[in-house]
């Protein structure tokens, strides 16, 4: 009986294999990964789109424009769960940054959980911007433990220099896990 136990222990050593990586490719700016989620350029997404954080800490999330063309101004609405998250601050990103400081205003309705960001490109090199880049940096603070979701509303709009609306093909979402 004793020898059988020994054999089992030794055999089980062979059965245990090595640890393997899962290989989850979900960078929000990965075009293939975004496509799998139904987000196609031009789109507005969060980067990063998920975070784990302690309840007393803040989370920095950037609002990214993905492959936009000929954009002169943007009005972005971020919806969040007001009972679970609070917006600590909002800073302007680098995409609309030209020689002149862009026009950048934020409005936070902490009761309904809606943050609105207004930004306008003011040159001097041309009237519009293009490409992929960060528009704003939002600092969230969790209010309670657990998962909470925030998203870019479909009310968000991008306009060209002539104030024509540009169709967006994707609106990003993000998740914060507060512990």
């Amino acid at each position: 009986m004793h020898s059988i136990k020994k054999i089992i222990i030794i055999c089980s050593l062979f059965v245990i294999s090595c640890e393997l990586h899962e290989g989850i490719f979900d960078n929000p700016l990965d075009l293939e990964a975004a496509e799998a989620k139904g987000i196609y350029p031009p789109a507005l997404v969060f980067f990063p789109n998920n975070a784990e954080v302690a309840i007393q800490d803040t989370v920095e999330v950037e609002v990214y424009a993905m492959k936009i063309e000929n954009v002169g101004m943007a009005q972005i609405e971020v919806h969040y769960e007001a009972n679970k998250l609070s917006v600590e601050s909002v800073a302007q990103g680098s995409l609309f940054q030209g020689g002149n400081q862009p026009f950048f205003i934020t409005e936070n309705d902490s009761n309904s959980g809606i943050l609105t960001i207004f930004i306008t490109y003011l040159g001097p090199n041309g009237k519009a911007i293009e490409g992929t880049g960060d528009i704003a940096l939002i600092r969230f603070k969790p209010r309670s433990m657990g998962f909470t979701e925030f998203r870019i509303s479909q009310e968000s709009i991008l306009l060209d220099p002539d104030a024509n609306a540009i169709t967006l093909n994707g609106y990003g979402k993000g998740i914060i896990d507060a512990r």
Binding site: L20, G23, N27, D30, E32, K67, T132, G133
Partner: peptide
């Protein structure tokens, strides 16, 4: 890959990561 914000760099890093992952899996 996770930290990159450049589409091209993301694609390259992803391709490399997938290749390495295949090698890791085969070796395992």
């Amino acid at each position: 890959y996770n930290a990159s914000t450049d589409h091209e760099e993301i694609a390259v890093l992803k391709a490399r990561a997938i290749k390495v992952l295949d090698e890791e899996s085969a070796a395992n």
